[in-house]
């Protein structure tokens, strides 16, 4: 079986499992909508800068919660089974791929709920949505590996936060800057450095995850 085929079938398996229980899906939906609603009750109306930052903070906590489960939900026996049928590279790639899908769904829900309740003071919606998509992908890339590490260290969700926040903060700073540019409707050329750094971070994290995961997987 080629690597791509393996990854494809593993993602498919994850989606089927999720579809059967709808545990993560409903959890995310409830989490995002209730957080947005609580923020609305607390703030009523916000100025654009706060609007932008608040959105990313909601995204941050929602995604930590969503991806935290990606390795935890697998029992020890099932993991052993995967070990016999698929290589570690296929497993980490499939996990990242699946988490990217989940994150895209999550950000779509979050952005819609947020925009409906708070309105959208955005100048350049295309660039803003691009920032959201890029943010979803980079969150997925970073959190997948960190959740793998945290899972090996005893499935501790505090540990997950401690390990992932220092790594995610630079991403968050760039994302907030990029989406602020989009909000102000600045020309795309202003945002090229941010886009470049984001792309570079994503490439780096995926490459490093690919080369490190085999060591993490082997027990």
């Amino acid at each position: 079986m080629s690597l791509l085929k393996e990854v494809g079938s593993l993602i498919q398996k994850d989606i089927i499992l999720e579809w059967r229980s709808k545990y993560a899906l409903n959890g995310i939906l409830l989490y995002v909508v209730s957080t947005v609603f609580v923020c609305y009750q607390a703030f009523k109306s916000v100025d654009p800068t706060t609007w932008n930052v608040l959105f990313w903070i909601i995204m941050l906590f929602a995604s930590v919660n969503a991806i935290n489960k990606s390795f935890v939900q697998e029992s020890q026996h099932r993991q052993l089974y995967y070990y016999t049928i698929a290589g570690p590279k296929a497993i980490i790639l499939s996990k990242i791929g699946y988490n990217v899908l989940i994150m895209l769904l999550l950000s779509a829900i979050a952005f819609t709920a947020y925009a409906v309740i708070f309105g959208t003071p955005v100048g350049d919606l295309t660039l803003y949505l691009l920032a959201v998509v890029l943010g979803a992908v980079s969150f997925a890339a970073v959190f997948t590996m960190v959740s793998g590490i945290a899972a090996k260290a005893g499935n501790n969700s505090t540990l997950m936060a401690v390990l992932s926040f220092p790594i995610i903060i630079p991403l968050l700073i760039i994302l907030i800057r990029l989406s602020k540019n989009a909000m102000l409707g600045l020309d795309w050329s202003v945002s090229y450095p941010e886009l470049l750094v984001l792309a570079a971070i994503n490439v780096i994290t995926v490459t490093i995850s690919l080369s490190l995961f085999p060591y993490l997987w082997r027990d």
Partner: peptide, 14 residues
């Protein structure tokens, strides 16, 4: 040793 080494290598480029 192993898991912290993995985290160290993962965090350094960032």
């Amino acid at each position: 040793a192993k898991i912290s080494a993995i985290y160290n290598v993962f965090a350094f480029p960032i």
